[in-house]
Design a protein around this nucleic acid. Structure first.
Lengths: 246, 246
DNA sequence: CCGGATCCGAATCGATACTG
DNA sequence: CAGTATCGATTCGGATCCGG
């Protein structure tokens, strides 16, 4: 059955019919990090019902956004098609837009490896990285561990298992990034206020939003310059009691 | 009741919670054209149930995306907040992305004034307009009539009533655009293939996708250069029977 | 006409259980 | 590992109704 149509002949409408169903764009978000197995997706989306996951994957395949790739003797993975990959700038822009309205986490909100990886990508400032020396960070948030390599050519992120070993390099995140990190630090959800510029690195440490585990703590400044989403003018006028009568 | 949470602390997730419900982004699309009354929105979204429209408008207000503005003695309009207006580049990009997968219209698909206005915005090439002399078009699609003014500084579109009079200028579309058009033409849904580059203007006329009503027919070339969404590489590999085994 | 609210059947979603 | 099957809880869609 074709997805319930909105009855309009329009590009935005078509896009929403392709990726607007519940959970669909979060699946795309995770697949933007790299190919993933069914089980990986289920873990990365802890609250998705399994029937919805399989339904969405089918719909995304029919829409030409996702494809299913069998691995030799290793099960299979889902990956974005070239067309699906064109959503990357859109998903990143949406992540930046949504960032402005993230409050504090709900009690049972989780941070997953893929969502944190994409969050760093949304916050990455190419311009800042271009002017700064290369750096390797290891970032711990909840039980997610990321190795983050920044140099003027760009950003690379590898996900480490909690144990400390990189995940299977065939599944998208190259392990070649793992030089010894210059800075290892752990953060809670309050890291959001570092990225938004509400907190300086020093404040963040004072308020225990963040703790340096190893390495050169002064690199936190550079991290904050490299990953930043200033709250936009629009986002701040939320409570604006404007009653403008035109 | 807070919208069903996805249970993740992430910007993309937050964005999807704000504007990911059914119909929400189409409401935003129409409000990007200008402030609209409840009834305007209902007309622009012919298939939306009225309870859904009012529910979405409430949710979008709670999310700081939309606000309700009373007009003196004239009812009230809904308009995007500054934060909501920051969705413009995202919605335009989504429109371009979805454009690649628009097939032929379903039998009962409609084209509304707002969706066509936004479609022209998604297709507008600033770079092309910068190099071309100014032009005024009048475009008829189904019963929608648009006055389109292009000059190096950008694009302005006014919606005309079928009768031929501009809509109330207080409601977003300035009527000041309405110089006498250099070209008046009528098109069917096949205009999509002109925008995509599948058809040249001459072909479009031959195939009766398009008919010049008045003015200088050679301006169709300029129109096609100004409004263009080339099908991306990714979009064409849809049927790609790739069975790559990694 | 404008701006909704209400009601109800149909479709979807969410949670859990189960299977090749 | 990669999904189906089932079933109650929600939401959606369509129609009607209502106060200004």
């Amino acid at each position: 059955m074709a997805s319930r149509s909105y009855g309009q002949y329009c590009g935005v409408t078509t896009a929403v019919e392709l990726i607007g169903e519940r959970w669909a764009l979060l699946i795309v978000r995770d697949l933007l990090v790299g190919p993933r197995r069914y089980t990986d997706l289920k873990q990365g989306l802890p609250k998705i019902p399994t029937n919805i996951l399989s339904t969405r994957l089918k719909e995304l395949q029919e829409g030409g956004v996702v494809r299913r790739v069998p691995l030799l003797h290793c099960g299979l993975v889902y990956e974005l098609t070239p067309y699906g990959r064109e959503l990357e700038p859109i998903v990143l822009a949406l992540g930046r837009w949504g960032f402005a309205h993230m409050g504090d986490p709900a009690p049972d909100d989780v941070v997953t490896a893929d969502s944190l990886t994409m969050a760093l990508r949304t916050a990455f400032r190419t311009d800042a990285a271009a002017d700064l020396p290369p750096a390797d960070y290891e970032l711990h948030v909840a039980d997610v561990v990321l190795r983050v390599h920044v140099d003027p050519s760009g950003l690379r992120i590898a996900q480490l298992q909690p144990a400390g070993r990189p995940v299977d390099p065939r599944l998208g995140t190259r392990a070649s990034v793992v030089d010894d990190p210059d800075l290892v630090f752990a953060a809670g959800p309050g890291i959001r206020r570092l990225i938004s510029g509400e907190l300086t690195p020093a404040d963040a440490i004072d308020q225990e939003v963040l703790a340096v585990v190893a390495g050169d703590a002064t690199l936190l400044e550079r991290f904050a310059q490299t990953f930043s989403i200033p709250l936009s003018a629009g986002a701040q006028t939320l409570e604006d009691p404007l009653t403008t009568v035109v």
